[in-house]
Design a protein around this nucleic acid. Structure first.
Ligand code: MN
Ligand code: MN
Ligand code: ZN
Ligand code: ZN
Lengths: 164, 164
DNA sequence: GCATTTCGTGCAATGAAGTTGCGAGCGCGC
DNA sequence: GCGCGCTCGCAACTTCATTGCACGAAATGC
């Protein structure tokens, strides 16, 4: 039997000492259940039928979860924000992978070994984003399980996708 | 006296053996003149008054320049594409810097020392994006020349900006 | 339990960035 | 110069996301 994601989500939200609401629980539970980062649209689609949670509320909850460090926000190459539950397992700073075919985004466990290149005089930095791009296991060439239905939202179909 | 960017642009475009048009020349000249990467809106604003070049044409030209490797496309954290003229000086792969205050993007000369973290089984990668974030020289705290008018398009003012 | 306060939510409107379809225009090879 | 085919301008459209406002529901104090 799978973990009770709703209960876990409620625990985490209660820990913030801010208001515990159904929308916050449902959205966080959805993120906890996911294996990769989810876009707003994907999250909305996974919410329980007739939960009555509005799209705008989902946007606001995601924003709130991010400020509470219960989720983190990833900018892909398709102008879509993606989110995932922030687990303590992964280091604060870590790289991401985005599939050029299906647009799926996953968090990697850390950076590789990385030191920033030198910046121009007067510039200061405090953060680094690393995104690896390529093909995920499902989209690997020759993969028989390569299901077209999974690729509705693929970058290849999107305006200004990953081609550079 | 500054370089004649229009002439340089025309040379580069003629080199592609494709059609040399005014819109292509003007857009590329604008990119050549710029010190950092430019968004579509910034480019449009810098085009000569009454050049008569349509916004859609700018989008299409930018796309074309990218396919011709005369420009390259950068995805920032504000859902806006930025472009810069591809100089042969910079290595094909290089990191970018994005200012958290004014959203300016510049290309750095290379990556630092970076090796990708391990990917899950079945995943393959062929590309890596590195974006350093922080404050540019103009936005450095205590900079007297810190001109608010430069920050109209800053990420702090944008929805879902760089805060994470 | 009940009133009060404060914050969250639903709904509708709005906004920004980018894309698409199509007829007219223009570059360039002849 | 002529004609073919790529390119442009214009208008409409799409997608993702944000904002304003009135209502509703958590927490807090009693
Ligand atoms: Mn991540
Ligand atoms: Mn660059
Ligand atoms: Zn994939
Ligand atoms: Zn700046």
């Amino acid at each position: 039997m799978p973990t009770n994601y709703r209960a876990t989500a409620e625990q985490l939200i209660r820990g913030t000492a801010q208001r515990v609401t159904n929308a916050r629980i449902e959205v966080l539970a959805t993120l906890l259940k996911a294996d990769g980062a989810m876009s707003h649209g994907e999250i909305e689609a996974k919410l329980p039928r007739n939960s009555g949670i509005d799209r705008v509320t989902v946007y606001r909850v995601l924003d709130w979860l991010t400020t509470q460090n219960l989720a983190h926000k990833i900018s892909g190459d398709d102008r879509v924000w993606r989110f995932n539950a922030a687990t303590t397992a992964q280091s604060h700073q870590h790289a991401h992978f985005q599939c050029k075919c299906c647009a799926r985004v996953i968090c990697l466990d850390d950076f590789g070994t990385t030191t920033a290149p030198p910046l121009p005089a007067g510039y200061t930095s405090d953060e680094m984003d690393v995104t690896i791009k390529g093909l995920c296991a499902d989209c690997a060439p020759g993969n028989p399980a390569h299901d077209a239905s999974k690729h509705r939202h693929g970058l290849a179909r999107r305006a200004g996708g990953l081609r550079r």
